[in-house]
Design a protein around this nucleic acid. Structure first.
Lengths: 147, 147
DNA sequence: AAAAACGTAATAAGGTAAGTTGCATGAAGA
DNA sequence: TCTTCATGCAACTTACCTTATTACGTTTTT
């Protein structure tokens, strides 16, 4: 199954943008992420709708982070992307007539709901600032390994 | 996104089989699940490889549950199906060069790993017997509602 | 005016689960 | 033994979804 990698993509993009003072263009971000600038616009457009980034057209235009890095959680980004389906596994029929299947669905749904709740809770606990710190930590580790 | 519904399917099938003394044919199961008998054979074949069901050919052949209902967990079934990918969301690149992307991946992977662990733990805690009991409960509730 | 950038719609490409067809094989019953 | 009913299996098709691409319009700066 083809997995939705937009959350991963926008995080990558936002962290690169965070290190810049000037706006970054869709072409620059696309080059970073090995994708197409139109895909970048489409995805970043969703973040703009959520008020997390802004875009400017014309010369020296591009994308800018609008929010405080410490105030943006992965969960907000997930929501900005339209809360895409989390699981690649699911029930065969959503509202079956068969009582057996209803029972199966109920039990599976409960398990999936718990796992999704945990995932979203984890997402809510991580901010862009945290990610940035994680990057800094890794960067230092590479420059001064085996301390 | 197209979701893998085989776990849901086999649970449905197994519960129907559990209520029967005779083997059930792929055609019968396919009719229950509104699918194709070949799909049933493909999926049930995986359970047979795991030793959970047996199949017999020819007249009065079909599928039978080999194991004790109380001894088979959803997790075992998930494993029998080849442990299909749980999440519909994932990293853009699995082993990126970019240190930023590595950091993003690491944090996301951690969250996904926790959620998957919880899901599998839930799966491990539910047996076919539990599902059967859930069905019985629902069945009684319908026959004697608002007690 | 030209160049650089985003905005958006429409379409193609690529991958995966599920569905379908066809034929071989084996077991039971007439 | 012959027919029927069942699984086994391979090959192919269909459906759907994400991502990529193409094309054109619009806005802003130089």
């Amino acid at each position: 199954m083809k997995r939705d990698s937009r959350l991963s993509s926008v995080l990558h993009a936002l962290l690169h943008m965070a290190g810049q003072d000037r706006p970054m263009t869709s072409d620059e971000l696309a080059a970073c992420m090995r994708t197409n600038p139109v895909v970048v616009r489409r995805t970043m457009g969703l973040l703009r709708q959520a008020g997390l980034v802004s875009s400017e057209r014309g010369h020296s235009g591009g994308w800018r982070i609008k929010a405080d890095l410490a105030a943006v959680t992965l969960r907000q980004l997930h929501e900005a992307l339209g809360e895409p389906t989390v699981f690649a596994i699911g029930n065969r029929h959503e509202t079956p007539d068969c009582l057996v299947e209803q029972s199966v669905n109920a039990v599976l749904d409960e398990a999936f709901a718990q796992a999704e709740a945990l995932l979203l809770e984890r997402f809510a606990s991580v901010t862009l600032a945290d990610l940035s710190a994680e990057f800094t930590r890794r960067f230092k580790e590479i420059k001064a390994p085996e301390r």
